[in-house]
Structures are given as structure tokens and as C-alpha cells.
Design a protein around this nucleic acid. Structure first.
Lengths: 205, 205
DNA sequence: TCGATTTTGATAGTGACTACCATATGACTG
DNA sequence: CAGTCATATGGTAGTCACTATCAAAATCGA
């Protein structure tokens, strides 16, 4: 629209990029907000108007991937529940795979800095909440509590699969094919959250 | 043991209790660490020696329940994977149900304060990590990557069920029976993370 | 009781974050 | 183009969580 929105987006991107740059170079803990503001050539108060906390500067990309997938799913036509979950999972993974370095950097910072890890996990749970809400909207059933329950568990399964696949991918970038892992996870999800009775069950514990 | 360990545990409990009291009375954000230290009649530095962050003062109880269940499970004899997960889930839920008010208070604070929510979610993920580690130790298989994958997904399913049940219980304390919800979740887990094909599948989405 | 170890409390300091205000800048009207 | 309004910005001052350090006090072993 106007020139205002343009500059807003521009400075927002500038701040986030400079922040990520500094975080990768000096580490999250060794970088002060003041330094980021100086690098982006804005005042600290301006920075805080765009990003409420230091952690959001790190997690914006992941947040866009997760929440974007929910928004995308909201616009999709009705499908079966397993198909819908699979679609959401694949959508998220494809978006994340678009910037492998950024994903790895985020998880690295989360491993080193507890507060980043905490905010990352909270972001993932918020994704589950949003997805649950959408599933409830789509599901129908006589018992509303059962619908809520099923939706929450299903969304949680999707979250679970995404986190597991991404975590294994991050920890072993070259030895793991996201597509292959996702495919295995899909079959586990469809057959059940656990190894199916006739499959690889019977594992002694 | 000695008098030292005794006093240590005593002051630790004292600080945590006074903190929880103040949090419930004035709210998490309106209570300063200095006030907590004063209420427990210790210096702020002493408080920080026992609790690294303000949030840990809120979450100690939940952490004990979750991590205690993993430790308990570690001492259990080998069982089938679904049975083991069910046992862990029930153990956690029973421990949480022992102090309903405390659980509700924690979730209330988490809903009001983002940082508390973030640390709660991170705690839950740490529970998943610990459980995954124990499952890997117990599981056997030719492909170590598949073992890791199965363990992580299974532990995630347990985490998912616990969080879903507890959340519904907290949001509707009188209308939800934890035992009943847990039973439904168990059958969902055993039959699959999603409604089984012959059960309540076919929901339009 | 004496010496070694641990626990405590106080002090000073860093840095994230907030509230507030004066200024500047893009947007709309005559 | 001039004037006016809404919004964005930067600076200041302040709160509070948290850290580092160190001397004093409490506890333990002999």
C-alpha cells in the first residue's frame, strides 16, 4: 500500500537479518539488543516495537513456517483426517527444507540457550493449538468433548512427527532424508502412533 | 544424613512454598524475587543458588512429577512398548492428580505469563527426551536409526496424551474425569494415534 | 576445640524490557 | 502547495531478573 507499510516491512526485515547475522557470529548470549539496534541503525525502542523479545528475533522464520502451514490448511478443501494431517506435515517440512541453514542455526541456538529452547517449544505448542482449532472446526460429531479430544490428539501427533523428523534431520544433516523419514512417520501415523501389532511390535522393553 | 542436607532441603522447600504463595496471591508478574527472598527470610543470592530462574519456582512440582515418572519407569521390569507407555502415562497422571490445585495454579500462570508457558513447554519436551532415552535403552532392533525414531515417536505420543488429558482436565475441572479420558487416550494410542479405520474414522474434514 | 569446607548475604554490575515524551515523517485535506 | 493529523522514531530514565565476587558465618571432621 502506502510508503509507510513498505518501510515498516523493510526495517523489520533489516532488524531480523542483522540480528540473525550477529547471533550466528557471536552467539545469542554474547549479542546485546543494543548491538543489534546499532547494526540495523535504529534505536532500541524501535526494535522493541517490532519484536517484543530477543527470542522472537531468532524464531520468526520457524513461526512463519508453522503458522503459515495452518493458514494454508485453512484454505484447503475438506479431506479425510489422516490425509489432512499428512498434508500439513508435508507442507511444514517443505517450508523448513527451503532454508536448511536457518533451521540448523535455530536448533543450535536452542541447544545452547535455554530461553531460546523454551520459546521454541512454546511456539511448537502454539502450532498445535492453532491446528487443533482448525481440526475442531472441520470435524463433526455428536460429542463435542470427544471432537475436541480427537482434534487435540491428532494435532499433537502431527506436531510430534514434525518435531521428531526435524530433530533427527538437524542432528544428522547428511545421513537423513527428510522425505524418507516423513514417509515412515506417515505410515506410523496411519497405522497408529506405535508400531502396529503385525508390524514391528513385540519389541521387548 | 548430616544437618547440612537437612537444612538445605528445608530452606529449599521454604523458598518454593513462599514463592508459590506470593505468586497465587499477587500474580507471577507482580511478585519480585526480592519479595520472595524476604518472605523466606533469605538473601536473594541464596535464592538463586537453589533456583536458577524465577520460573523454576513455579514448575518444580510438575518437573518432579514428570521426571519422577521416568526414574520410576527406569526401575520397572521389561514390558511391551504399549504397556510401558500406558504405565508411564498413568503414573504421571496419578502424581499430578495428587495436587489438583497446584496443577491448576501452574496452568493458570502459564496462560497469563508467556515466559512461564515457555518454560512449561520446554519441561514437557525434556520429559519426552528423557523418556526417549529410556525407550532406546530398552528397545532392540537391527537399525539403530529406526530404534531412535520409534522411541522418539512413542515418547512423543505419551507426552501428547498427557498434555491433552491434563489440559482438558484443567480447563474443565468438574466435567472431566482424568481416568476416563486417560482410558480413551490409551485405546487411541493402542489402536493408533488417530481414530482407527473401523472405529470413528471417516470424519469429514 | 581447631581447622577445613560449605553455606550465606551483601555489594556492585550487566542487560532485557517498559513507560514516557519530544520530534520527525509520511498521509490526507483545503 | 500549505496545513493538519496520525503514526513512527529516538532518547531518557527506570525496574527487575540475573551474575560475579568476596567476606563472614555455620557445619563438619578430627
Amino acid at each position: 500500500m502506502g510508503l509507510r507499510e513498505l518501510k515498516r516491512e523493510r526495517t523489520r526485515r533489516l532488524i531480523a537479518d542483522k540480528a540473525f547475522e550477529l547471533f550466528c557470529h557471536r552467539g545469542f548470549g554474547r549479542t546485546t539488543v543494543e548491538q543489534i539496534a546499532a547494526a540495523a541503525e535504529v534505536g532500541p525502542s524501535t526494535l522493541y516495537r517490532y519484536f517484543p523479545t530477543k527470542e522472537t528475533l531468532v524464531l520468526e522464520f520457524v513461526e512463519d513456517c508453522l503458522m503459515g502451514a495452518v493458514v494454508w490448511f485453512r484454505g484447503q478443501p475438506p479431506v479425510d483426517l489422516p490425509d489432512g494431517l499428512q498434508a500439513v506435515i508435508e507442507h511444514v517440512l517443505e517450508e523448513l527444507e527451503r532454508n536448511p541453514d536457518r533451521v540448523r542455526a535455530v536448533y543450535e541456538m536452542a541447544d545452547q540457550t535455554p530461553s531460546v529452547s523454551a520459546h521454541l517449544q512454546e511456539l511448537i505448542w502454539r502450532f498445535r493449538e492453532e491446528l487443533t482449532e482448525e481440526l475442531v472446526r472441520r470435524l463433526s460429531g455428536p460429542d463435542p468433548q470427544l471432537v475436541e479430544f480427537t482434534a487435540a490428539l491428532s494435532a499433537g501427533s502431527a506436531m510430534n512427527i514434525i518435531e521428531t523428523v526435524v530433530r533427527m534431520w538437524v542432528e544428522n544433516p547428511d545421513g537423513v532424508e527428510v522425505k524418507e523419514l516423513a514417509r515412515r512417520a506417515m505410515s506410523l501415523l496411519r497405522g497408529g502412533g506405535l508400531p502396529a501389532p503385525g508390524d514391528n511390535a513385540g519389541h521387548g522393553l
